[in-house]
Design a protein around this nucleic acid. Sequence first.
DNA 1: TTGCTCCTCACGTCACGTGAGGTGGC
DNA 2: TTGCTCCTCACGTCACGTGAGGTGGC
Lengths: 273, 273
Amino acid sequence: VSTLLTIGEFSRTTLLSIKALRHYHDVGLLEPVQVDAGSGYRSYATAQVPVAHVIRRLRDLDMPLEDVRAVIQAPDVAARDAAIVAHLERMEAQLERTHATVQSLRELLEGAAPSVDVEFRSVAPTPSLAVRATVSWEGAEEWLGQAFETLAGALDSSAAERSGPDSALYSEAFFEAHAGEVVAFVPIAGGARMTAGVESLAIPAADLAVAVHRGPFDDLDKTYGALGTFVTERGIGATGDVREHYLDAEASDGDPAEARTEVCWPVRGGDSR
Amino acid sequence: VSTLLTIGEFSRTTLLSIKALRHYHDVGLLEPVQVDAGSGYRSYATAQVPVAHVIRRLRDLDMPLEDVRAVIQAPDVAARDAAIVAHLERMEAQLERTHATVQSLRELLEGAAPSVDVEFRSVAPTPSLAVRATVSWEGAEEWLGQAFETLAGALDSSAAERSGPDSALYSEAFFEAHAGEVVAFVPIAGGARMTAGVESLAIPAADLAVAVHRGPFDDLDKTYGALGTFVTERGIGATGDVREHYLDAEASDGDPAEARTEVCWPVRGGDSR
DNA sequence: TTGCTCCTCACGTCACGTGAGGTGGC
DNA sequence: TTGCTCCTCACGTCACGTGAGGTGGC
């Protein structure tokens, strides 16, 4: 009893296209049980049909091939399920964001000019505990969360006292290349015993245009747009990091819709205004 | 008062990367108001910030650039909203499918061998009304629906009587290249007055291995897998179109979970068994 | 003047699809 | 033997990202 199928038969049995099957062979995701040395003809086994089906389902969910590989090569059921659940959660989070975005998109399209109050502020150098890294745009939010946990721990074990909210410095490269240096910091009063991975940093003085953003980070573009427009129209732009102050980090018990964020845009000093 | 921004300033104001902005310029989606003839330096206006934000939001929703272009160039609000709503609905349908897929994926991974009953059947040539086209994999379901509507209309206006369920013939190319000829047909008794776009076709005789699939079309892989495996292990494979019979087209009032589909796989004639 | 911003190629990524041109197997 | 299945390049797609190598402007 032969259990071998040609690539065409296997294609019809698995509902995967021949091109896809050849590609999966090329990348070693699903290898034919036999390849003719002379002609290169591929032969698949009926026993491979279930694996092929799993691959097809996962690709239907837009799971990347490398993740698919991880699932079908998972050492145990738990690891396999974890990978699938993780992917599903990513997709659900995506849809949730989509819904939120559609809502604010409507407002944006209605053209209601978002009125944002901008205030000027000169800040002195600020001693701080800081964590610093080169971060990608997509990874930023997660990195920030971990950084502030690290800083909270360092604050606990130091002799210092917090003198301001969780904050961050974003380099120009972070915006322009969607990857660049980010510094998470907590301003402190007094000296501090240091922890590994955390540095003592004096956040430099600066002249800033400041606007308060309310709501989730996905909507930050409104505030950034208002600040950039404001600064440009007054001709007071300056180079330097943008700062954000996360005002309700502890107060707002994880309700991002109510969180307030101060966005601080560098401007030229007061004498030029 | 200058309202012009360099690409870097515009990047920070819109939260779009410089590379993305240059790309949008290249494809004519968002053109700088001014480009220096000598240096090629791009200048954007503060007035372009809202458009850029809309583009950013839509890209966040994974809307293709051509669709984004359609939205921001839409002649009126209705057309614009329609494009956005259409995209949102596509995404929601996608998530719904994802949920369904995850469910059946678990069963697949549990390795419960799906027991499918296969029966042999020899069919005689069948006079039919048919619609024929080259169809892509993704467009197939929608095309089929329209084809059966066309056929129902043709049946009404003809003198013929239906002698079997809505059915379809799928070429091998349709499976192997995910694009190929599909024939939607309704078997009829007696001659028929013809309608434009509909042809009279004798569906050829064939020897078939038949299995009944229950549930949505996304799960068809189980049934195809069972048939392909069955036929291969018995060495009775034959070339030819695969047929599907949609048994409850009218009965199951649009509940795809209960729909029954007969899948018919070509095999060699009875004397070889 | 120096360094920094910006520029234009050219190529890479991801998961295949689309031909072109050719050979093996029933 | 014929046509059909299958093969391997090589290139295209989409929305940018990643350097390389170079110039303009404060």
